[in-house]
Write a protein that binds this DNA or RNA. Structure first.
Length: 210
DNA sequence: CTTTGGATCGTCT
DNA sequence: GACGATCCAAAGG
């Protein structure tokens, strides 16, 4: 009898074709992948899908502007936006140029460079509070509008998404999307069941999973 | 533990 | 001129 195969292997960059499909397929597949950069790495444990023209909650719903231009570009790039006058949030762009779909990364489990994440978020006591929210993880990873458009496949801007062999959950937990008014009931939020780094959503309707 | 309000400014109407 | 794909501290149970 040999022991069970280890779930981790040397991390590999996800290929461009990983992002070729729609946000609804890519989002749950991104769970347990690694966001790597700036000497830091975090495992993606919570995501949300946004679909441009068919989704009234999407930044791309009303067409292309200077802010959301990256969403209309090639897949595998990072769309970073500024909101609430002080926060950044990061999305992975899906689908071919001209079709604006993206996956918002909502939470990371810190994996590497925790000291750097702490330095970027002074005053945070517990590791599970370093990146358990879309703006928190940008702060922890050092992501700002300077990384808008970063290519996550070539890593030319210092950021990559990698696969270390940990599979996505067979049955991810899901619920409606957080913090939006229109179409908030659409079940396009997914997370790794039971992970302590998943964000604490404010008042949210019945969630499935855990 | 939960609830509430303030911070702060780019973006689009 | 209004409103966020949010976070945090403070106050109450």
């Amino acid at each position: 009898m040999s022991p069970p195969a280890p779930s981790r292997r040397r991390p590999r960059v996800l290929p461009r074709r990983f992002y070729a499909g729609g946000a609804l397929e890519v989002a749950p597949q991104l769970l347990n992948k690694l966001l790597v950069g700036e000497g830091r790495a975090g495992r993606i444990v919570e995501v949300e899908a946004y679909r441009g023209s068919e989704d009234p909650a999407s930044h791309a719903f009303r067409g292309e502007t200077a802010r959301n231009a990256v969403m209309f570009g090639a897949p595998g790039h990072l769309y970073v936006y500024f909101t609430y006058g002080m926060h950044f949030c990061a999305n992975v762009v899906c689908m071919p140029p001209g079709v604006a779909e993206a996956v918002l990364i909502r939470a990371l489990a810190p994996v590497e460079g925790v000291d750097l994440m702490r330095a970027a978020r002074p005053g945070i006591a517990r590791d599970t509070n370093l990146a358990n929210g879309p703006a928190k993880l940008c702060q922890a990873m050092g992501i700002t509008r300077a990384q808008d458009g970063a290519d996550l496949v070539t890593g030319s801007d210092g950021l990559r998404v990698m696969d270390d062999g940990v599979a996505p959950p067979t049955v991810p937990a899901s619920s409606g999307r957080v913090g939006i008014r229109l179409a908030s009931e659409w079940p396009w939020r997914w997370w790794v069941p039971g992970d302590p780094n998943v964000s604490k959503a404010r008042a949210l309707g019945a969630a499935r999973g855990r």
